[in-house]
Every structure is written in structure tokens, then in C-alpha cells.
Design a protein around this nucleic acid. Sequence first.
DNA 1: CGTTCAAATATGTCCGGACAAATTATCCGG
DNA 2: CCGGATAATTTGTCCGGACATATTTGAACG
Lengths: 256, 256
Amino acid sequence: MTQTGKANGGSDDRPQYVRIGDQLRDRIARGDYAVGALLPTEGELCEEFKISRHTVREALRLLTDAGLIQRRQGSGSRVLAAQPHQNYVHAMRSLDQLFLYASDTRFVIRDMSVAVPEPTLFPEIGGDGAEWLIVRGLRLERDEDIPICDSTVMVNAAYAGIADVLAEGSGAIYRLIEDRYGIEVLEVVQDITVSPITAQAAKSLGKKKDDAAVQVRRRYLGTDGSVILASVNHHPTDRFSYTMHLRREGAKRSWV
Amino acid sequence: MTQTGKANGGSDDRPQYVRIGDQLRDRIARGDYAVGALLPTEGELCEEFKISRHTVREALRLLTDAGLIQRRQGSGSRVLAAQPHQNYVHAMRSLDQLFLYASDTRFVIRDMSVAVPEPTLFPEIGGDGAEWLIVRGLRLERDEDIPICDSTVMVNAAYAGIADVLAEGSGAIYRLIEDRYGIEVLEVVQDITVSPITAQAAKSLGKKKDDAAVQVRRRYLGTDGSVILASVNHHPTDRFSYTMHLRREGAKRSWV
DNA sequence: CGTTCAAATATGTCCGGACAAATTATCCGG
DNA sequence: CCGGATAATTTGTCCGGACATATTTGAACG
């Protein structure tokens, strides 16, 4: 077969690997290959489409990058999803940027203890009598004593050893845990709601007891699905602002 | 050179292309190749590292996938960033899922007009006397008349033609625009704040005039940076909840 | 100096081959 | 039937080659 940069013939000038990749993607979407099932092997695809193994692999790579399949040496290519996800990326260098404050801040620790958390603190967690390292504090503007939010952090007891190195300005707690224990935060679930302010937060933030507060609750999950860390932040409503920039993943950038 | 699955010698069992890719990444981080500058060509890298073009390309692909470089046929490989972004993905099939409501909803249009928007509506937009298609309405639970939020949408006048096809339940407005005009929403900027409720929203949502409301403001930007669409939603604080799941990009999934 | 065109350059696509490494299947013995 | 060893299978890594395509560079000309 003549080697061409693009496929010959017809009005389709897409590269072969793109055409084959699209065909496979369509088959997956149609259910020809069920989620969880294996695709034909590289060899079988070479025979079916009369192309080199290289081209098959490039096509499969497109599917892999799209999150549709997962490949494993010795096993084959398994379908992960029937439809590609259109990812909009909240690009960050790290989770530090998940919540950007208007200016630099510092975290002042008010209290730290290993205890069974109150059931209302994080209902989805606890309730089984297990102890957590509970860190209570206040986040302030760096150079001024303006409180930004009242914060309570629950650290999985398995990582309670970081209590030794927790200090004001010591950086994000989840990072301390990642570094100290060599683990990785895989996923973060963040909930934002508005609710009556707690007595503690009202006191810390200089608010009245019948004021409302914005609650930002986060769970940091590890690779095994366990909760590494959870936090509840109470923000005064009149000083709360949360901005996200979501950008379509894989969008072409101009060359200039 | 003997062809091996992994590099020979020493304690480093990473594939060659990973090692070379890491070396190049380190050089970029150190500033050996400035942002905006070109990397050595494939040929030069082949000579320097004494490896095949295939392996060079695999290494460069790692850098490309990490967002560090951008490659262009005939030109070379240009450095985009000195540090890789650690992307946490808010995976969505589309922007429809940017804001998930607890249940199915419908959008009831109350008013539609082409006009110059009030300056307070979206201060970052307008203010230049330009007209926009302004759509005011209410988002309700699908089968009940419980208002979820009061909504005002400003559509760029270039796409005002969609007024013809706007109807209750006609789906997301940005999608109508994308489909009708063949354009693409590249980025969304979303701001969440809490502020005094507007008179209009108080009336729509059955709230008192001195209540607060959660404001969710969004700008949908096109590939040229222009604002395609902007929206302001007022949610009653006692019924507002926003959940995000952010997952580390490229995280390995278990095979089973 | 600016424009046009051809040549050189640099990446993109596709082929084929070989060996390595991981997994799966099969066979045999207890 | 179960466990261990071996063979077969499947993907991963790396080599080399060839042609296509897009861009850049340099030379010639007005």
C-alpha cells in the first residue's frame, strides 16, 4: 500500500488513524462493543482494516485519550465508556488553587484534637465512632486581621501524625499529608450551600447569631476512595465570592 | 542498538522516551528553553540522545500532552509553559452539567427584548451602548411550580436570531447558539456571590425585599474571546446548593 | 526595499520489523 | 480439583525507512 500522509480516494481527507478511530468510536457508541468488553485485538484490527499495526495503535490512542478505552499489555483494550466526556478543565497547578482568595491569606489554628467528630460536622463522614484529627481555626488576610472564614478540618486518623508539623502558615494541609505519607489526592468533592451561621463561626467572624453564612465543604479522596481529609469553611455572606474558569479541554491554541 | 522494552543499564528502568521526556521537561523548567522559544528539532534530539526519531517523538508527545509544548509541522516544537499544570477535571459531557439541579427543571420565559442592558446587570459587559438580546425568566422544577432561580440571560446581538426558536423547555441557550451559528463555547467564567436580592427576583421567588440571594453569574466566551452569552441567576439562599467533583487528570483507573 | 518563487527544513502519516513484558490459556502432576 | 509450569497471546518499546505536508529561508527580480 502506498504510504500517504492522508488517506487516498474519496472526499475524506482525514488521516487513516482518525478515520479508523472515529469508526471504532461510533461502534462503541452504538453498543457493538459493550462497556466493560474487549475491543478486537490490534492484530484483528490490522486485518480488518488492512492497515499497519502502527496505524491501529494511533487510532486506539485517540480512543484512549478520549477516555473511551483502557489498554493493558497482555490483555487487550477494554471499553470504559460509550460516550466521550467533553471535559472542561479547571486548570490548576495544584489543589491550592481550587479556592482562590482575593489576596494572600494565613491560617491561624485555634484548636487541635483527636476526637470523634460531632455528627453534624460532616454527616457523610464519621458516625461510626471513629476518631479524626480535628483542627479548628480561622483564615485571615495575610497582613491584616480580617477574618475570611472560620474553618474546621478533619484529618483521617491514619494521617494524624501531621499534627506535629501543623503550624500557622505551614501551607495546605492536604499537601502536608501527600508529602508526609506519599499518597495522592485523587478527587475532591466540594459543596457550596448557604445556611444559618454556627455559634462558633458567628463569634469568630464577628457576625450575629441569626446571620447566614456560606458553607464550603470539601472531601479529599484518595486513590482507594477513602476520605483523607474533609473541611468545612464558613464564610460571611457579604464577603464571599467564588470564581471558576472552565476551559474546553484539548482546545487548539494559536501558534503565534 | 539492541531493542529493549526498557532502557538498559543502571537502576533506571523507565522507558527511554519517559527518561528523555523528563530530561526535556527539567530543562524547560530550568529555563534552558524559554517559554515561547523552540526546542531542538527532532533530528537534533535524535543526534544528541542517540535514539530513533520514533523515541524522540514519543518523548515530545509526553510534553505535548502535559501542555508544556506545542508542535507544528514545518516549524518545530515551541515551549508553552515552564511548569506543567496539574489539571483537576470537572468532567462533563457538556456545559449542561456545569450546574446540576436536584431534579429536572424547565425554563419559563417571562420577557424577551433587544435592548441596551442596565449597567448593573453585568458591569463587565455592556456599558458601550451596544444592544443585547435580553431574556428574562424563571427556572422551575419540571413538574411543580417551585421556582429554583430567577434568571436573566444576555445574548450577544450577533446571535439574536435564536429569539425565533426560544421557547419553554427548548434546552440550554448556549447550545442553541452553538448549533445555529456553528460556533463553539471555549471557556466559561462563573462567579458565585451572595448579595441582597433584587426586587424582581424577590417577587419571582416569593422572597422578602431584604432577603439575600445567591448570585451565579456566567460568561460564555467564544474562541475569539468575545462574550457569546452571559447569565445572571438569583437563587434563594435556603434552596441553594452547588456540588463539584474534581478528579485528577490522567489518573490511572484500575483494570477490573 | 518589497514581492515572488523555489529550495530547504521540520513535523505528520504510515509502513515494516524485532524484541520485551504482562497477561491469559493450557497442560500436567499430585 | 487445584496448583504450578509452560506456551501462546497481546500490548509496550524501539528501530529504520519512506513519502506527505506545512513552514521557513534564501535568492532573484523589479
